[in-house]
C-alpha cells in the first residue's frame, strides 16, 4: 500500500511534563479523502489533532506528510508545508472583520490573496455579505465558516478540523458537512474530529474511534457504522 498523504504514526505524548494522554495512537488519511475521529469526551481527540499539528511534544511516534518526516517542525513550519488547522475553541479573531480574519489566515503568503478570498466567499456566500462585520458578532455557524475559511487561506493540502459543528443547529451542520465534502472534492485532504459521530461517519472515507488515547476501532466509515460493538457503545444503538 502506498504511503498515505498524512500520517501520525504511533504517537505517544502529553501536555508539558504531565502524564501521557496519547498512547501509540495512529491516524492517517489519503489524498483528497476525509478521515473522521470520533470517541467519548476526554478521549484525547483534540490532543491527537494538536499532536499531528505539532502543538505538543511527542515522546515517540512520528508525523509525516507526503512521505516527508515533519515530527520536529513547529506549527508555523507545518503551515508552510501545506497543513491548516481549525482549533476546537477560539478559532477566530473576534474583533476583526470577516475579511481581516481571512487576510490573517494568509499572513505568510506574499502573493495575491484576492482570488483565494473569492474562493472562500464562493464556498461560504454568507461571509461575502458579512465581510465588513466583526467576526465575533456573527452566529455560531457563521463563525465556524470564518474559522474554516481562515484555515483555507493558506491554500493547504491538508485541512484539520476539530469539531467544526460544535454548537451549531442541525440545519447549519448539514450545510457545513456539505461544504467540507466540497473542499475534499477539490483535492484537499481532511482530518476531522466530530461529536456527531453518525453523520460524520456517513461522509468519512476512514473512521477512527479513539478511547483513552488509543485506537479502539479503525475502518471505513461504513464498516464502523455496521459494527455492532461500535454502534452500541459510541453511536447510541
Amino acid at each position: 500500500m502506498a504511503e498515505p498523504h498524512l500520517i501520525g504514526e504511533a504517537m505517544t505524548g502529553g501536555y508539558g511534563r504531565g502524564a501521557d494522554i496519547l498512547h501509540g495512537c495512529t491516524l492517517s488519511v489519503d489524498k483528497g479523502q476525509i478521515a473522521v475521529i470520533v470517541g467519548p469526551n476526554g478521549a484525547g481527540k483534540s490532543t491527537a489533532m494538536k499532536a499531528v499539528f505539532g502543538m505538543l511534544n511527542l515522546r515517540s511516534g512520528s508525523v509525516r506528510i507526503g512521505g516527508e518526516d515533519i515530527t520536529h517542525l513547529s506549527p508555523q513550519d507545518r503551515v508552510a508545508k501545506g497543513m491548516a488547522f481549525v482549533p476546537q475553541t477560539s478559532n477566530i479573531f473576534p474583533s476583526m472583520t470577516v475579511e481581516e480574519n481571512l487576510e490573517m489566515g494568509a499572513f505568510l503568503r506574499r502573493d495575491d490573496i484576492r482570488p483565494t478570498i473569492e474562493q472562500v466567499y464562493d464556498l461560504f456566500p454568507i461571509l461575502r455579505d458579512k465581510r465588513r462585520q466583526a467576526a465575533g458578532e456573527l452566529s455560531g455557524g457563521q463563525r465556524q465558516q470564518v474559522a474554516v475559511g481562515r484555515a483555507l487561506m493558506t491554500q493547504p493540502s491538508v485541512l484539520m478540523l476539530d469539531e467544526p459543528t460544535a454548537g451549531v443547529s442541525p440545519i447549519v451542520m448539514d450545510e457545513l458537512f456539505d461544504r467540507i465534502i466540497e473542499v475534499a472534492r477539490a483535492g484537499i485532504t481532511i482530518l476531522m474530529v466530530e461529536q456527531n459521530a453518525r453523520q460524520a461517519l456517513e461522509i468519512a472515507d476512514t473512521g477512527y474511534v479513539l478511547v483513552q488515547g488509543c485506537n479502539a476501532y479503525t475502518g471505513t466509515g461504513a464498516e464502523l457504522m455496521a459494527d455492532d460493538e461500535v454502534r452500541r457503545t459510541f453511536l447510541g444503538g
Binding site: P75, Q76, V79, A80, F85, P87, S90, N91, I92, F93, P94, S95, M96, E100, E103, M104, G105, F107, L108, R150
Partner: peptide, 22 residues
Amino acid sequence: TRTGKSMRAFSDNEDLALLSGI
C-alpha cells in the same frame, strides 16, 4: 497595514495568531 492588523490579531487571539504564522 499588514503589521497593524497582525498586532490586532495577536491582541485578539494569541494562539491563533501564532498558528497563522504571525
